[in-house]
Amino acid sequence: MTAIPIPSEAERRSNQAFDALLTALSRPGSIQRLPQPGEASIIEALLDRECRVFCADPLLMPIVLATGAIVADLPAADHVFAGALQDLDVVNGLDLGSHLYPDDGATLVVRAVLGQGPKLRLTGPGIETTVEVTVGSLPEGFWDLRRQRIRYPMGFDLFLVDGDWVLGMPRSTQVEVL
């Protein structure tokens, strides 16, 4: 009889973080729980030497570097950890992929406050009719710029992290600021 495999702590964290990310992205507007607060578990679950990463938060840099990911300029990065957004430069510089390869569009991870701030109404795949969420501490004009930049299927996919909460917003989601 072979021994029953037991996941290591790192494997358990990555698996749980990915479960949260996948559920968050397939059900935009639903808040999922990461195994630990902050972006660290996301970095651990997704990044390795094949990734090009732009990281604006110096505190996250050591975690990113430990994965072996290549540190890249914003337009060349496939994963962008912007920390708390001060302005919209990051959104303006993101790689959106191409119509041939929409998967080249970047994944943007931003820190925000979930549960307070402006009210948003979301529609699109993953949402039965509409869902309303409140997302605070994003710069003025963020959602307008997102709408202008995304040319579906080109675009970027957004994760909003607040402590150990994560909210996903794929490029297919339409956001209306109420």
Binding site: L21, L22, P102, P170
Partner: peptide
Amino acid sequence: SYGFLDASAKREIRRKMLKAVAVPGC
């Protein structure tokens, strides 16, 4: 490796699954 696949294989599939969900049917 837990679940047979090594960690880098899983990470690559995770990244691609997220992109696949973001652009349904692509």
